[in-house]
């Protein structure tokens, strides 16, 4: 899957002189760009786990669908760029809602929800991936929704695309943070996450909350998918790589911790960029995973998780 990994492309675009300052700047830019994409990819996953204890194996496909939605809108229907972006986000939200209505809502009350929902969403993942493959083919497309051009700071080139990614991700995550902490809507979600029975007794329509959470996760994942595909390319399997990173980020942060997932994503993005720069892109993820496992040996509940809740 090296073809589809965004950081490979980024390095080949950016690599320049061997000056120490340049290297640090380079790592910062790559790391921040990667980190903000990872953050977008993982907050939705963390939110779904936090509120409903559901691990969504189809989350990577939400990303793929967002990317293909934007692509179809821009390339096939000729929509202008902002509108195409919106179509992609919408596509993610719709798939999230559809999955909730068709599958998740019927399974919420099962005793072994955590495991069976993983099986069911794995089925959704393979189904959606195959449908996309049938519709668009395996040939990797270029994402039309992106900004061209670059600027130079010293010897380091910064593409406007990188800046756009960080800004866009920042705006979306900021909005989500505002929604969760400052609105009644967010209060309902947080209450459900803390204790769904108590939330229900206080008049929160938890079923509706779950639907909203999956829509938010779908939109966030779609955004991540669009951004990732603008650096790499579109392919039916493009969701696998960022999904795994989102998994790892959520595990390090402590499953369900949304803020933790955001911070962890940025730091792991920076770390991966640094490892990739000094040891080769190939080792970025393996070293990261190794560190994650070491972290978990000492803090089984993750960095931001509550001790004792997670370790069975």
């Amino acid at each position: 899957m090296p073809k589809n990994s965004p950081h490979l492309v980024m390095f080949s675009k950016h690599i320049s002189g061997g000056e120490e300052m340049d290297a640090i700047l380079q790592i910062m830019i790559t790391g921040l760009t990667l980190g903000s994409m990872y953050a977008l990819a993982s907050v939705g996953l963390a939110l779904t786990f936090g509120t409903m204890g559901m691990f969504n194996m189809a989350h990577g496909l939400f990303m793929t669908i967002g990317a293909y939605g934007s692509y179809a809108a821009a390339e096939l229907w000729g929509f202008p760029l902002p509108l195409a972006l919106l179509v992609g986000l919408l596509a993610g939200g719709i798939v999230g809602a559809a999955m909730h209505i068709a599958i998740v809502s019927h399974m919420l009350h099962r005793e072994d929800f955590t495991t069976t929902i993983m099986v069911a969403t794995a089925g959704v993942a393979i189904l959606l991936q195959d449908l996309i493959l049938k519709q668009f083919g395996a040939y990797p497309f270029k994402q039309p929704v992106q900004v061209e051009g670059l600027m130079l700071i010293g010897n380091t080139a910064i593409t406007y695309q990188s800046i756009a990614i960080v800004l866009f991700a920042g705006i979306l995550i900021g909005t989500l943070g505002w929604l969760l902490t400052k609105t009644r809507f967010g209060l309902a979600i947080r209450a459900t996450a803390m204790n769904q029975d108590a939330a229900k007794l206080m008049g929160v329509k938890t079923e509706l909350t779950y639907l909203q959470v999956l829509v938010i996760a779908g939109v966030m994942a779609a955004a991540a998918g669009i951004l990732i595909s603008s650096l790499a390319s579109l392919s039916p399997g493009m969701g696998a790589n960022p999904l795994i990173r989102a998994f790892v980020i959520c595990v390090v942060a402590g499953l369900g911790s949304v803020t933790g997932a955001g911070f962890t994503a940025i730091s792991l993005g920076l770390m991966e960029a640094a490892i990739g720069y000094y040891f080769g892109v190939r080792y970025g993820f393996p070293v990261m995973l190794g560190l994650v496992i070491i972290v978990l040996i000492f803090r089984p509940a993750g960095l931001f998780g509550k001790q004792g809740v997670v370790r069975a």
């Binding site: 998994f247 595990v251 994650v292 496992i293 069975a312």
Partner: peptide
């Protein structure tokens, strides 16, 4: 990995 809870085990083995 196996000291961890179900979902963590699934994710780590997958990763």
């Amino acid at each position: 990995c196996l000291r961890l809870k179900t979902a963590y085990v699934a994710l780590l083995t997958f990763a």
